[in-house]
Design a protein around this nucleic acid. Structure first.
Lengths: 343, 343
DNA sequence: GGGCTATGCGACGCACAATGTCGCAACCAC
DNA sequence: GTGGTTGCGACATTGTGCGTCGCATAGCCC
């Protein structure tokens, strides 16, 4: 079934099968994969295509140190098939600004071909002055950006691959005290990215309990020979809600009632707390409003409320009110004692 | 210069020049653009390629209601040239989870071809059970996720394009009080995305001052005939630092000194506040540490400190200490009065 | 309506590009 | 050495990419 017009398509398939640099693919493997997809082609043709057609027109390299040659794409080459349009490129730029503070640099780096692609498009477009756009677009992160924990590129590659392909990994892990390195075989069950750190949820080989491993403390990771052990009843959402990351959440929502100052009212009118919120002006107050909303009963919401400081007075639920009050009292106590006896 | 092996390359260029659906491109325009890029080809060949080669192998549509036919890609088709690898796909999934809470849905939607691509890869990969990965990966946002303000897709397209191509726009804008719609001609100077709302910074036609326009209050936007007015000395970072978004920042850093409880110390050891921070255990305290760090003197940092509540005691700078103390006092005052009057 | 232009499309034919085959060389394993 | 695997140059054949021509259709202007 070597229909003639297949040529273009076959080239495209080849280009898709050749991985970006850290990866490589050997000629016979490529032939095999092409055959799987219906392109039965002679080995010789493949060789010709690679060494004469593709590698002269594309940033494709060849590792000819071993005999079945290995082919790979330049690390940062990228080509979108329908090219990016302007709005998408702008969105990518915004996305990058946000993600830089949220994900470890290496992980964002994983997407760098996309981002550079977007930047190039924008640069090319405003032919007059280059990088005009860079002076015009900003993302202001939601909270304070801590410095994301560095993780090793190879680690990320291995761990993410192991998780998704359901394999075990052998890791060398730096324990929290930072003094002892230990070797484990882990059975990955999930990944949670939170704040600026990323954690692998896994069983240690031979144990039943799930533990968290900070990826930036993994010194080395390789796919393991051990068969992967699945935890059948694992539910990552349950796990998180269970409080494992300090985000305990009771299953049900609560009704939040609070008085809020004008700036908060404005903010919430634009970006509501929930889709059932109501805000009503309070009479006889200097610009205060009554807020009612169904919100999840979790740590995040409580923090947000506390972050608003004196601009918000929580009336219900009672528990939150108590917490906030106790919190303020404690803080005050700190500063009161500290100013007199600051030892 | 019709070197023979150009064919593949020409096809690729064509595929890049054909825009995704909302856009369309007419055959003669395509010919023109190809010529610009060095592909001088007969119109007939172009037509043949489009109607016989590409549109049978790719999700490409044709609007033949008017005579110069218009061609376009299916709305959600996407093809990465070096195909996505597993780690990149996983990163995209994480990125999407974060961005959903940060950018308006339509803007994230702009990237949906990328995300669906990633999901498809992951689904295909774990051939055994579909969407395995979806049960294994979570991103926990940094702060409380408010509901992102909805904006109109056409609005985003028009505004972003106008900003980047330096054009004026005619908009119909719903004023903050939500009752009156007004028509303006705006001269876009920048876009700021913050929390879950996105703002256009622009001059109103005929005025010199810069104003903020929330994109979700723009009811309609079209490119204007008016020539674009630039504000030459505009610097978006200065503007933001000036406090326009409630993030006043003094130019210099300050030295933060504070006592922090053990959990905070752990957090900061993993994801530091700044690259100069030091954390030392305090003797004779039950797990408290002394933190010293150079941090920017901005609202964000102050909020973060306040968010830590009683787990952190700020010693310097003095101004922050006062602010936090005053804050706690005010809050306590709220609850003290309210608990006596409202219960 | 007539003529002009722009566009799409079928047909034709030539040149040359794509591909399979063969033979040889290099390398590796045993 | 021997056999298997892979890369590569050469060659012949096929057929396809592409320019060209002619015709049909649809506007547009006088």
């Amino acid at each position: 079934m070597s229909e003639p017009r297949d040529t273009l398509f076959r080239y495209l398939t080849m280009l898709q099968l050749i991985p970006r640099f850290p990866g490589r693919i050997a000629t016979p493997v490529l032939k095999e994969k092409l055959a799987e997809r219906g392109f039965n082609i002679d080995t010789r043709s493949l060789q010709r295509d690679l060494s004469q057609k593709l590698s002269t027109q594309f940033p494709i390299g060849c590792d000819d140190s071993q005999k079945p040659y290995r082919w790979y794409f330049d690390r940062d080459f990228q080509c979108q098939l329908p090219a990016l349009d302007v709005p998408s490129a702008l969105t990518l730029v915004l996305a990058e600004e946000y993600l830089k503070g949220l994900l470890p640099p290496v992980v964002v780096g994983q997407l760098s071909p996309h981002f550079t692609d977007a930047r190039k498009l924008l640069d090319d477009m405003s032919a007059n002055g280059l990088s005009q756009w860079a002076r015009k677009v900003r993302a202001i992160p939601n909270g304070k950006a801590l410095i994301p924990a560095e993780i090793n590129e190879a680690t990320w590659q291995t761990i993410s691959q192991a998780l998704l392909e359901q394999k075990a990994v052998d890791v060398i892990y730096l324990s929290r005290t930072s003094h002892s390195e230990k070797a484990f075989t882990l059975h990955p069950q999930g990944i949670v990215s939170r704040h600026s750190a990323t954690y692998l949820l896994a069983h240690v080989d031979g144990f039943k309990d799930l533990r968290q491993f900070a990826l930036h403390r993994v010194k080395q990771a390789t796919l393991s020979q051990q068969p992967w052990q699945e935890q059948h009843d694992f539910d990552i959402d349950e796990y998180i809600k269970g409080g494992a990351f300090g985000y305990r959440q009771r299953p049900s929502d609560v009704v939040l009632e609070a008085d809020i100052a004008k700036p908060v009212a404005w903010l919430l009118q634009e970006t509501p707390l929930s889709d059932t919120q109501s805000i009503e002006a309070l009479p006889d107050t200097d610009g205060w409003y009554r807020l009612t909303a169904h919100v999840p009963d979790d740590q995040q919401t409580l923090w947000w409320l506390m972050g608003m400081g004196p601009n918000i007075k929580v009336a219900a639920p009672q528990a939150w009110r108590e917490t906030i009050k106790a919190n303020a009292e404690q803080m005050l106590a700190h500063y009161a004692t500290e100013s007199s006896s600051s030892s």
